[in-house]
């Protein structure tokens, strides 16, 4: 089954300056590097290491998860909607871009 990022946005057409809340969750194993397999061999660390949220060219938020972040990482953040634009979210891990999602924000 396809598992796209789950995105919830409090209001995609906010008033100018309105604080918009974003919730996003992706499926990622978040292998801690502490575990060993049945043969006692260590399972290599595989962590989501970065998340960025941009509104057009402006960086809104950067998140740097470590091992304590749960499997299928959940991130919630807010931003003040000062102008319309494309909200672009990118999740990255050791192998590069792990997931991405975009939503249009229309300030009216």
């Amino acid at each position: 089954m396809a598992r796209p990022p789950r995105i919830w946005i409090s209001n995609e057409t906010p008033a100018p300056g309105e604080v918009v809340r974003v919730r996003a969750q992706v499926v990622h194993v978040m292998e801690s590097g502490f575990r060993v397999d049945a043969e006692g061999q260590p399972i290599p660390e595989d962590l989501l290491t970065g998340f960025t949220a941009m509104l057009d060219d402006a960086l809104l938020m950067e998140w740097l998860p470590e091992t304590a972040i749960s499997q299928n990482p959940y991130i919630e953040f807010t931003f003040a909607a000062r102008h319309s634009g494309r909200l672009r979210m990118v999740w990255s891990d050791g192998s590069g871009v792990a997931d991405e999602a975009e939503r249009e924000i229309r300030v009216g």
């Binding site: 300056g17 604080v19 809340r21 509104l55 402006a58 960086l59 809104l60 938020m61 950067e62 998140w63 740097l64 998860p65 470590e66 304590a68 972040i69 749960s70 990482p73 959940y74 991130i75 919630e76 953040f77 807010t78 931003f79 003040a80 000062r82």
Partner: peptide, 18 residues
């Protein structure tokens, strides 16, 4: 557990994780 970085453009500093 993690870091969060914001900018002047964010206009807020309110985050939640698991």
């Amino acid at each position: 557990a993690c870091r969060f970085r914001f900018t002047a453009a964010t206009g807020s500093a309110d985050v939640a994780v698991r």
